[in-house]
Simulated scan of single mutants.
Amino acid sequence: MEYLSLFCRDECVEVRHLARIVRGIELSEPPRQIGSKEYESAYNGLIQTHLPKLAAHGVVEYNDTRKTVTPTSRVRQYALLAQFARYLR
């Protein structure tokens, strides 16, 4: 979420790029060093679960056909809330 908030509103991001970034953050590794198995796991999780849910809540626009994500104006709000929630743990 925080990564998506760095993009300009209405700027498309490819899901394959996003999957490498997410998995790299999870594994604390540079995205270019993410293996295909790790990449596929993140990619499948994004397209099957996370992106449709974020789209349903208006945080992103998800184009399932093109496999692209476009942040909406709400993405920054959700990123801020996610950051705040981490501090409460």
Rank of each mutant, 00 (worst) to 15 (best):
F84A: 09
S73D: 12
A55E: 13
K67L: 15
K53V: 11
Q77I: 07
E61P: 04
A79E: 01
R76H: 06
E61W: 13
K53D: 15
L80S: 08
N63C: 12
A55T: 09
T70A: 07
L81N: 00
Q83A: 08
G58P: 03
K67A: 15
H50Y: 15
T70P: 02
H57I: 03
H57S: 05
A82T: 00
T72F: 12
A56H: 11
N63S: 15
E61L: 12
V59T: 08
Q48V: 02
T68L: 13
A85W: 01
Q83H: 08
A85H: 00
A55N: 14
Y78E: 06
A82E: 07
V75K: 02
V60T: 09
T65Y: 12
V69Q: 04
Q77C: 03
T68M: 09
R74T: 11
H57T: 05
A85S: 07
D64G: 10
G58E: 10
Q48N: 12
K67V: 09
A55M: 00
L81T: 05
A79V: 01
R76A: 05
T70K: 11
H57C: 02
L81G: 01
Q48H: 12
S73H: 08
T65V: 13
V60Y: 02
T65C: 08
V75A: 01
T65D: 15
G58I: 10
R66K: 15
L51H: 08
L80N: 09
Q83W: 03
T68Y: 04
Q77H: 03
T72K: 11
V60C: 06
L54K: 12
T65A: 14
Q83R: 11
G58T: 06
A82V: 00
T70Q: 13
K53H: 13
H50W: 01
A85E: 04
D64K: 13
K67C: 14
F84G: 06
H57V: 01
R66V: 14
K53Y: 13
R76D: 03
A55K: 07
A56K: 14
A56S: 13
K67Y: 14
D64L: 02
V75M: 05
N63Y: 14
G58M: 10
A82Y: 03
T72I: 09
A56V: 09
Q77G: 00
T68F: 06
F84Q: 06
P52R: 01
Q48A: 13
Q77M: 06
Y62H: 11
T68W: 13
V75R: 04
R76L: 04
V60G: 05
Q83K: 07
R66L: 15
A79M: 02
L54M: 15
F84S: 00
A55C: 08
Q77K: 07
Y62I: 07
E61S: 09
V69T: 07
G58N: 04
G58W: 07
D64E: 14
P71F: 10
D64Y: 01
D64H: 08
V69R: 03
L54Y: 12
